[in-house]
Design a protein around this nucleic acid. Structure first.
Lengths: 153, 153
DNA sequence: CCGATTTGTAACATATGAAGTTACATGAAA
DNA sequence: TTTCATGTAACTTCATATGTTACAAATCGG
């Protein structure tokens, strides 16, 4: 199955934005994510609607973080990007007239629901600030500077 | 994302096979699963290699369950069908030179690993016999007979 | 007002992978 | 030796995440 990488991608650019003092354009963020500016706008649009970022048009415009990183969890971001299904398995048929299929689906659904719950709980336990701390820890371990990470790399 | 339904499908036919006294052909199983006999052979092939079913060629041949349903768990079957990834989310890049991406990936990987573990544990706690019991319970609730479930339905 | 810059969005194109299909070889039973 | 069945390779189809093009709308500096 082709994996959805919206969450991964958007977290990446959000974290970069936390270290920038000025609005970031879709073009810049696209370069960071290795993708097209339009893709960035599409995904960031969800965050904008949810109020986690703001967008400004025109020269000097771009995207700005508009939430408290210590109060925003990965679960919030996950929902804002449309909560794409985290589960790659499914049923063969959704409307089984067959009782065998019903028995199978019921068990699998229970497992799927458990997975989804565990995932969201995990995300809810990690704030953007925590991610930012992770990053700073890695920087320190490497003895690298913030500027080294501005995605010439 | 297109969901992988091999586990769902194969459990369905396995359960049917438990209630049959004779080998089931790929054609019959395909009709039950609403798919092509070749697809059935492909997936059953994994179970055969793992020893959970046997296949016989020629007239009167077909597939036969060759394991103890009370000793075979859904986790066994899941592995036998190739353990397709249960997780629909992924990283944007796998080899990040960027420390931001590393920080993000590490957190997401932890969440994914937790999901996968929970899923396999859940599957490991359900035997084919338990599924069969589920089915019989549903039959009783409905007051239906076994024959009603032979997939004309 | 004008032109440059940037977001917003629709419409279309590409790529990936699960599932479906065709074709034919192999083996077993009557 | 014919018929029924699996075994498997090769190809097609379909869904959908992502990428691309095109252009409208808004904002800023002059």
């Amino acid at each position: 199955m082709k994996r959805d990488s919206k969450l991964s991608g958007i977290l990446h650019v959000l974290l970069h934005m936390l270290f920038m003092r000025r609005p970031a354009t879709s073009e810049e963020l696209g370069a960071m994510m290795g993708t097209n500016p339009v893709v960035v706008r599409r995904v960031m649009g969800g965050l904008r609607e949810a109020g986690f970022v703001t967008a400004a048009r025109g020269p000097g415009g771009g995207w700005t973080v508009a939430c408290d990183p210590a109060a925003t969890t990965l679960a919030d971001i996950y929902r804002a990007v449309g909560e794409p299904s985290a589960i790659a398995l499914g049923h063969r048929t959704e409307m089984p007239g067959c009782l065998v299929e019903q028995a199978v689906n019921a068990r699998l659904d229970a497992a799927f629901a458990e997975m989804a719950a565990v995932f969201e709980q995990h995300l809810a336990g990690v704030t953007l600030a925590a991610l930012s701390d992770d990053f700073n820890r890695r920087l320190a371990e490497r003895g690298a500077s913030l500027e080294d990470q501005t995605h010439a790399s």
